[in-house]
Amino acid sequence: MIEASHLSKRFGAIDAVRDVSFSARDGEITGILGANGAGKSTCLRMLYGVLTPDSGRASVDGIDIRGETSKARAHLGVLPHAAGLYGNLTARENIGYFGALQGVERARLKTRIAELADLLGMESFLERRAKGFSQGQRIKVALARALVHDPGNIVLDEPTNGLDVMAIRNLRDMLLALKRQGRCVLFSSHVMQEVAALCDRVVIIGQGRVLADETVQSIRERSGGKSLEEAFLGVLGDTEGVR
């Protein structure tokens, strides 16, 4: 369970995020939808505590991210927008490094990496150095790295960016598997179809504000027979540039 309440953040003269509140529940996939520059990344960065909000608070499983950062982060897996790997380390070493820094014990780490390799289909390249990995292999390792400490919550910032169709499909399956395991999945995207296909709830952000926070189902119902796209556009207003 991830909760944001009244988060605000300014960068100089720009209000990047203004009074944003929402919650992402366990066993659900929550999507944050918004155009580029709408404040999605800033919002997520405050949730995993690399940015300090000017006001408001964020919590993971009820633990305040500012007050008890380390404890909250132990409940949280993060796949940032830039999810680069260490090219000179193998996939296993990349995952193992993050596991060790998360405080996972050596023996447990070994079994956990085996589990993740099985879940994400990484056996064939687990012992290879990450230098020559494809985008799909990269995202799998980055996701495994975020999940290595078995967190109940996972935050992904635009995870499908730069992925080909097959990789997006794979990622979608992985997120659904995480949901079935009862985890709270929160991800941001500017691709409407992706959000619609995957999410239980959608938080729509425009110019740093929450414009809508409801289930995909209710948006569909509200559209009253019109296409989903039009329903979204109705919420966003027509200037937001969402695909």
Partner: peptide, 13 residues
């Protein structure tokens, strides 16, 4: 440059 910094900074270390 590799883009691994943010992931590293979001660890409880």
């Amino acid at each position: 440059e590799r883009g691994s910094l943010e992931a590293l900074l979001s660890l409880p270390v």
